[in-house]
């Protein structure tokens, strides 16, 4: 696994330095959008959370509760109206290669092959061809897309496209992976399979993961910790659950079902 060294070496050092300090800190984040010039939409209110290094944190909430906005603020694509985001103690102001983003709608370059998409990050940062090919190949293999390097996105299924998205984010060598409802467009069976794959990939190459979803099963299956947001705007923190079930988890395990019941009961959906 020599080709993994490029991506993993940087975060190993950081892990030693920051063993006890959190990787990401969100301090009192609020976000107000101005719509149509005059309308104020209060999307997030007073969100404070800490993400530990190499933790798998799931942000859970129904549609329209601001969870994607929170992720985009951490990614640096939006600025918070109040509060700050700290990554390794540094304030986040703009997107950066230390955070890899995976979108719900794949967002692949249609005119580039799987290889071309995955090697995009290193290429943009001027990594020589031979080296970036090696990095990309490593992550293509990691997500199980070997033999599809020369396929174009339109030749792939939804699950495979999202594998490309994950490999592409990994190949840029981020310390934090931000996934915004990555499996929202997949059918139920593919979705469960992709959740298992996500767990396998994360176990093989650990990163700090922030995973946004509206699916309670998915959250329990993947998370070290779940932060649930209230089901209406503005999004506020509802509760935090530590999920200490052994991995890999079973959807039909009694403890799993118990947790599922608890979280379902706690979430209030007002229409």
């Amino acid at each position: 696994m020599k080709s993994a060294d490029y991506a993993s070496s940087q975060y190993i050092c950081l892990e030693r330095d920051n063993m006890n300090t959190p990787k990401i800190v969100c301090q009192n984040i609020s976000k107000i959008f101005i719509q149509k010039g005059t309308q104020r939409v209060h999307v997030l209110q007073d969100i404070s959370l800490e993400v530990r290094d190499n933790e798998f944190l799931v942000i859970l909430g129904p549609g329209q509760c601001g969870k994607s906005t929170l992720l985009r603020i951490i990614a640096g694509l939006e600025t918070p109206s109040e509060g700050t985001v700290l990554l390794d103690g540094q304030t986040v102001t703009k997107p950066g290669p230390d955070r890899g983003l995976v979108f719900q709608s794949y967002m692949l370059f249609a005119w580039r092959t799987v290889m071309g998409n995955v090697e995009m990050g290193p290429k943009l940062n001027g990594v020589p061809k031979a080296e970036r090919r090696k990095i990309a190949q490593h992550y293509i293999n990691l997500v199980g897309l070997q033999k599809f390097e020369n396929h174009y996105p339109h030749q792939l299924s939804g699950g495979m496209k999202q594998r490309v998205g994950i490999a592409r984010a990994y190949a840029n060598g981020p310390q934090v992976m931000l996934l915004d409802e990555p499996f929202g467009q997949l059918d139920a069976q593919t979705r469960i399979f992709m959740e298992q794959e996500t767990e396998r990939i994360w176990q093989t190459e650990k990163r700090t993961v922030l995973f946004v979803t509206n699916n309670i099963d998915e959250a329990i299956f993947l998370a070290d910790r779940i932060v649930s947001l209230e089901g209406k705007l503005p999004g506020r923190m509802a509760s935090v659950y530590d999920i200490d079930l052994p991995r890999p988890r079973e959807h039909t395990d009694m403890k799993f079902l118990h947790l599922r019941q608890m979280i379902t009961d706690a979430s209030t959906l007002t229409l």
């Binding site: 694509l77 997107p95 290669p97 890899g100 983003l101 990050g121 943009l124 840029n172």
Partner: peptide
Amino acid sequence: QMARTYGA
């Protein structure tokens, strides 16, 4: 935006 997150 995606390209920006990759540092383009």
